[in-house]
Design a binder for these strands. Structure first.
Length: 271
DNA sequence: ATGCGGACCTGTTAGC
DNA sequence: TGCTAACAGGTCCGCA
């Protein structure tokens, strides 16, 4: 479900409900997520105040004075604000209950997500330390992408989806950004000119920003933390449109698999 | 160092 | 209508 815009939509959606609130209780119904929920999460987090709700890549970070909760939503995870009366669903794995009875509820049917407690310096955490720059930051430039890609044989789509290169570019937006930049997804990353990387970085930033403004992409059942669906899906140009007409030239879009991921492109507009 | 395929798990959809 | 297989937003890990 979540790509970076969905995670950012989740962050901004939950933050006002939990910022500066004190955790009264932590309820773990299912600890077998991608990694086991940290065994000391309940003891460590109870009584702590949420000082900030941050995001690094697709990780959400709930910072307290004692440590940080690291949350990843995986493919199917979501965080919602719930209340005592809210029905508990089959895949509602963790509740963080605040003193005012507000509940932050972690749901994840596929259990690819995680919820970890980290007391050390969060930026040195193994999951975060090797990550590339944020795509919306000033560090993410065509010069950076160009130099990082030299001698890289992999397809450019695989390259920009590599979290060590740049974070937050998932399958949907990788497809969309390459279409907008006019670059064939299979093109060898190391052979793309800096001018084309300039187009690509601009496209990535623009598409992610637009999606964040729209509240994320709605695919199947994504809803943001307040239950409102995102509205970006209707503006997707290629993702999910295999064999349909290119919005620019009318040519039927091609759909292939690249690194086991569905890849859609226009063979005329993307070279 | 880079690149690839497999793994994790459940729900939905496409096809017979 | 019902069963089965394929596929889905992510990304870590081990092996070549």
């Amino acid at each position: 479900m979540p790509e970076l815009p969905e995670v950012e939509t989740t962050r901004s959606g939950i933050s006002p409900h939990i910022h500066n609130k004190v955790v009264g209780q932590v309820v773990i119904r299912q600890e077998n997520l991608r990694w086991p929920v940290s065994p000391n999460l309940v003891n460590a987090l109870t009584g702590e105040k949420i000082l900030s709700v941050e995001r690094r890549a697709k990780y959400l970070l709930l910072k307290t004075g004692a440590g940080t909760v690291i949350i990843h939503l995986g493919m199917s995870g979501s965080l919602r604000i719930a209340h005592r009366e809210s029905r508990i669903g089959k895949h509602d794995h963790v509740d963080i209950v605040f003193d005012d009875q507000t509940i932050l509820r972690f749901t994840d049917p596929r259990k690819f997500g995680c919820m970890l407690w980290e007391e050390g310096n969060i930026s040195e955490h193994p999951l975060l330390v090797k990550l590339g720059p944020e795509p919306l930051s000033d560090d993410f430039t065509s010069e950076y992408l160009h130099s990082a890609s030299r001698r890289r044989k992999s397809a450019i789509k695989t390259f920009i989806m590599d979290g060590q290169v740049v974070v937050g570019v998932g399958n949907i937006y990788a497809n969309e950004a390459l279409f907008e930049a006019g670059i064939h997804p299979k093109r060898e990353a190391g052979r793309v000119s800096i001018a084309r990387y300039e187009k690509l970085t601009v496209s990535i930033k623009k598409i992610l920003l637009r999606a964040i403004e729209a509240g994320g992409t709605t695919l199947r059942d994504f809803t943001s933390s307040d239950g409102q669906p995102g509205y970006f899906k209707q503006s997707l140009c290629v993702y999910g449109r295999g064999s349909e007409a290119c919005r620019l030239c009318g040519t039927p879009l091609k759909e292939i698999r690249l690194g086991q991921r569905s890849t859609v492109y226009c063979s005329k507009c993307q070279r």
